[in-house]
Design a protein around this nucleic acid. Structure first.
Lengths: 248, 248
DNA sequence: GAAATAGTGTCTATCAGACATTATGGC
DNA sequence: GCCATAATGTCTGATAGACACTATTTC
């Protein structure tokens, strides 16, 4: 089991934006950015350039700027573009964490968003920071993460799996045109269990969420698969039952 | 339809904690406290004693105090006790709202919690503020609410209904001992639709969430109903299917 | 034709909804 | 017995899972 809360390497508290007994907590936005590549779920991490936890890996994010950001959502979208160059992926608010002791600099509140994007569309290191895609194993990564980011990430992974049970959000991890076997494989990778092909396709068909594209995709071998496109990226549709909890 | 964002009665901006171009937004916690009484879902409102929106109804809450509150969750629990005197009801974080223009005093971030409690257990006005239980109609109340609290409330009502579809949280709206017809009635009141008795009881039985109490409750007439107790208030169990979306 | 993968068809156990029936109290 | 409500039983259509089968491509 990975420890969920880290201690800064230096030990001593570093003067920060919330020092000197301010009556206001500081506020940051952090992102759990997911993608699927090489048959694995990955999350984007950045290496911290400043103390505390300098040199450690962390979820990307930082302080909200009331002068630049019109809203918390806008702040999250800005940071997402800064980190990945991607303009409009799937972005959803997850949860807000705040306490006196989750950051050595003092009272800091963090709202976490999670984002889903296509692996190929990402341009890393836009923010001059070292960044990497870390494979997700279980509910975390194999690095020690700064602050309480291991907890933040575990919650994000759990939420992602949970939402996959009853929504279509996995389409946001695939390019605009994709095949049903690819979609099924995405679900299987994240849920970590095989799904029955027939049931999966029935489920997708009933949801009426995809439209077929005239044309075909060929794989290395075997019969080519039909291409589909997600019908409506704005509408969030729900499956009436969860996808994986009904095994006999 | 009720307008979701109000404008302060006075019009002019009131100097507040986030004025004078502070680089930090302010942070508040607000509560959507629900109960069921008189066959209706109700939410707790307080009358604002200070500007802006002085004299208007609003969700209870206020600024987090970094000296008193150890965490955002603790802040929500503190405000809940201050408003209702109830120590440990069901309390869950809902969502965080933050933008430059949702409060005339400037950049304010608000995390909303929703709470479920037994109507009888509440002692109103503990915080020296005028307070009332407002019946929920549709996704809001019939009062005009201060700030964007109509939106906050609508989101909370939607989340409550949504969670009732697949979880047991309605038990938190009932006293410790209750009958199955009372539990079913609670679901029907909030979901605003009748449920089949047989299906409802099968569902509850399969979830194995209740334990029977030796003894009986008598109503005004008819056969007395058995009393039950919720088995584990900490465990959040889920139904494998939603409760109401399967009508033929 | 063989291999590989895509896509469809069929059978069956399960289960939610509908509704009838029985049970148990007060009067 | 009658009324009211609680609790249970039964029937049926829908459907998820399992798995066999067909289709279409490359080699």
């Amino acid at each position: 089991m990975i420890a969920r809360t880290a201690t800064p390497a230096g030990g001593a508290a570093v003067p920060g934006p919330d020092d000197s007994g301010s009556a206001k907590p500081s506020f940051t936005v952090h992102l759990a950015i997911f993608t699927v590549r090489a048959e694995r779920l990955h999350v984007l991490l950045v290496k911290r350039a400043e103390p505390p936890f300098q040199g450690d890996w962390a979820l990307p994010g930082g302080f909200l700027d009331p002068r630049r950001d019109d809203s918390v959502d806008a702040c999250a979208a800005r940071k997402l573009v800064e980190e990945t160059g991607v303009q409009a992926p799937y972005l959803e608010q997850l949860k807000t964490y705040g306490s006196r002791d989750r950051d050595p600099r003092g009272w800091i509140i963090t709202t976490v968003y999670f984002a889903l994007m296509v692996s190929d569309s990402v341009r890393l290191g836009g923010n001059q920071a070292a960044a990497c895609w870390a494979p997700v194993r279980g509910d975390g990564v194999e690095f020690i993460l700064a602050f309480d980011h291991a907890l933040l990430l575990a919650d994000a992974v759990e939420r992602l799996r949970s939402k996959l049970e009853y929504t279509h959000i996995a389409v946001h991890l695939l390019p605009e045109e994709f095949t049903l076997p690819e979609l099924q494989r995405t679900y299987e990778i994240i849920l970590q269990q095989p799904l029955d092909k027939s049931s999966f396709r029935r489920r997708v068909a009933q949801a009426d969420m995809l439209e077929e594209i005239a044309g075909k995709l060929r794989d290395g071998s075997g019969r080519p698969a039909r291409l589909y496109r997600f019908r409506d990226y704005d509408r969030q549709t729900f499956f009436p039952r969860s996808i994986s909890r009904h095994a006999r």
